[in-house]
Simulated scan of single mutants.
Amino acid sequence: MGYELSKEQMNEILSQLKEDYLIYAPKCFQDGGRFSDTDCIRYGEINKIEEIVFDKKAEYSFKEVLLPISQTLFYFTEDSVKEADAPKQGAIVFLRSCDLHSVKRLDEIYLRNGFSDYYYQRLRERVVFVLMGCQTAFDSCFCVDMGTNQSNEYDMSIDRSENGYQLDCKSNQLEKLLSQYATNNLSVTPAYVTETKTRVNIPSNLSYQIGNSNMWREYDTRCINCGRCNFVCPTCTCFTMQDIFYTDNEKAGERRRVWASCMVDGYTDVAGGASYRQKNGDRMRFKVLHKVLDYKERNGYHMCVGCGRCDDICPEYISFSHCINKLENGMKEVMEHE
């Protein structure tokens, strides 16, 4: 159902929704940027529609709503264990098409990868997704080539218009609320881009032979293994486990899972002191092939959604999209040496 609502009407709706939901969207954190006197666009809780940033890309993805950076799983004492409480409220998340496609990737890993992750599931089933239409693509986006520029898997969509905001609603619950403010007399299609400045080409003959290419050695010295590319990526899902013991009682504490990164030191450490993929180029190879090769072989579609955040965040200006475009020559190299 299509609606057009004013700013005031949208704020009244958000006010009612906040009784049952925490509402997250890209917002501006003043002076919160990586450099002095710069702002940061990232996800945070909002109260009014004016707080949502529609014309800039969020530097960090929405995923910390579903996968908290540090999440307590349970508390323990010497003789008891207590599961951590679930959030009392659900969540409404405003996100773009590429990020909405990444939810499918997160679901695949946490709900259908041979098991169903209880802690993820109890958050996931209480989340409402609002698709933010994209009028234009940002410089580093390559969503069109990854097939993630358009999505219909939303509960509601929102686009700015001359008179306020146009919405398409698929949720019965939200439908009842919206109908109190406007008559559904519009045909609304969320805006989406059909071309991007950045383009990628994944070779049709890409195989694991690419691992023998010399192209990965470039990243041995360029990459500083900070892991930022993993932390901003909406489809990276790795974590590590930490047991925290309280200082006032060393026999009590809590177990947390905390984001981890395949690009940082210690990720591949194993019992006995061994550590795999010590070279940064090997870590880059692992990450790239996970995003555009082995995940697709298992699930039929690429893990990468083309948001371009990894290109934007890298302090060494390493471009993931450029690396993808080097795969074709890398395959030629390894085929010639067979």
Results as ranks from 00 to 15, higher is better:
127 V>Q: 03
315 P>C: 10
197 K>M: 06
332 K>E: 09
154 Y>L: 05
92 I>K: 01
156 M>D: 03
291 K>T: 15
92 I>V: 10
268 T>W: 02
144 V>L: 05
253 G>T: 04
265 D>W: 01
310 C>P: 07
38 T>H: 02
223 C>N: 08
6 S>G: 13
167 L>V: 14
249 N>F: 02
145 D>W: 02
30 Q>A: 04
286 F>Y: 13
332 K>S: 06
61 S>A: 07
273 G>H: 02
239 F>K: 15
64 E>R: 13
7 K>S: 11
235 T>H: 04
105 R>I: 15
306 G>P: 03
182 A>K: 07
138 F>P: 08
73 L>D: 05
91 A>E: 08
9 Q>G: 05
12 E>K: 14
191 A>I: 10
117 D>K: 11
319 S>Q: 13
115 F>Q: 14
86 A>N: 09
107 D>G: 06
157 S>P: 03
75 Y>A: 15
48 K>D: 02
157 S>K: 00
283 R>H: 08
38 T>Q: 08
42 R>D: 09
282 D>V: 07
148 T>H: 04
63 K>W: 01
47 N>E: 08
252 A>S: 12
230 N>H: 13
62 F>Q: 12
88 K>V: 11
322 H>M: 09
55 D>F: 05
327 L>K: 13
282 D>C: 05
32 G>S: 04
310 C>F: 05
323 C>D: 11
287 K>V: 12
175 E>R: 12
200 V>H: 03
234 P>L: 04
259 W>T: 15
129 F>C: 10
100 L>M: 08
136 T>D: 03
128 V>G: 03
185 N>A: 04
306 G>W: 00
32 G>M: 07
282 D>A: 03
130 V>P: 12
337 H>L: 14
322 H>A: 06
191 A>D: 07
143 C>L: 06
260 A>I: 01
114 G>C: 00
238 C>Q: 14
164 G>M: 02
252 A>R: 15
192 Y>T: 12
225 N>M: 07
227 G>H: 00
31 D>S: 06
57 K>I: 15
304 C>L: 08
198 T>W: 00
27 K>D: 01
331 M>N: 10
172 N>G: 12
201 N>V: 11
326 K>I: 01
194 T>N: 02
71 Q>P: 00
244 I>S: 03
296 K>A: 15
293 L>V: 15
262 C>P: 09
212 N>S: 15
273 G>A: 12
249 N>D: 07
158 I>W: 01
82 K>H: 01
41 I>W: 00
247 T>E: 12
270 V>K: 02
52 I>M: 10
19 E>G: 07
14 L>G: 09
288 V>Q: 12
18 K>G: 02
99 D>A: 01
319 S>R: 07
116 S>Y: 06
129 F>Q: 14
318 I>M: 11
6 S>N: 06
200 V>S: 00
110 Y>I: 13
225 N>C: 10
